[in-house]
Design a protein around this nucleic acid. Sequence first.
DNA 1: CTTAAAGCCGTACCTGACTACGGAAGCAAG
DNA 2: CTTGCTTCCGTAGTCAGGTACGGCTTTAAG
Lengths: 132, 132
Amino acid sequence: MNLTIGTLAAATGVHVETVRYYQRRGLLREPPRPLGGIRRYDEHDARRLNFIQKAKHMGFSLDEISSLLRLEDGSHCQEARELGERKLGLVRERIAQLRKVERALQGLLAACRANAGSVSCPLISALLDEQP
Amino acid sequence: MNLTIGTLAAATGVHVETVRYYQRRGLLREPPRPLGGIRRYDEHDARRLNFIQKAKHMGFSLDEISSLLRLEDGSHCQEARELGERKLGLVRERIAQLRKVERALQGLLAACRANAGSVSCPLISALLDEQP
DNA sequence: CTTAAAGCCGTACCTGACTACGGAAGCAAG
DNA sequence: CTTGCTTCCGTAGTCAGGTACGGCTTTAAG
């Protein structure tokens, strides 16, 4: 496998500029460029880029992905696990928070639907109410 | 009630600069300033600022809050409801997405804990795996 | 050999919601 | 009346994670 930046980008569903950006950030190596010319990537780079995409999907930030990539050889499970556990905690917090919002919104919208023609909108009133 | 920007900010738990920012964004009126001087706010402004804070908590963006504020008189429940319903949909999507992440992470971490000393870390391997 | 597409580079710009800065002017307490 | 905290203003910077630009060189196809 011998990829230019464009084919690598296309293959992994990422913009060319993003690949360059990841290189600047140190998430991808600067690949060899034979004879003063253009970057040549291999399947290792593609795998790494794939790793980054999946980790992003898991909610890891680019900085965290940096850390994970330093554990790429798989022999530091403990550290990887700690990172994962922190992330899982945050994900759960976020879910809990969103559920509160969901319930609040749900209640207000139900009141709105029951409202049918009254003067004041329950959603607006709730937001206007002085209570914290 | 006759508030300076500082007391208003303190009363609503917002930075002074943020109040000015909201004014620039059109979320708060420019309050009267008697005699070439400093802004004087009243409890209507405090209520509005409170409204903004609560709506932010509900996940509304400042642009959406602008829209909501235009319905402040409570007589356009239909429109407010539509905004709320859109938001609720987004909140639910986000929750669903985060739950997927939660489950994935949970599985990987369980594998990590069961791993105990094997060569390759399940979390890292999963991210490295070629499968989408 | 020519030409068009793709790659190169540094730098600037984008979104959203602020936050900081710095120097001038106002205001309240003593 | 002075001191010192607030407020005033416009502008610029912050964060993350890119995206865009423009002018230049390389490369691949015909």
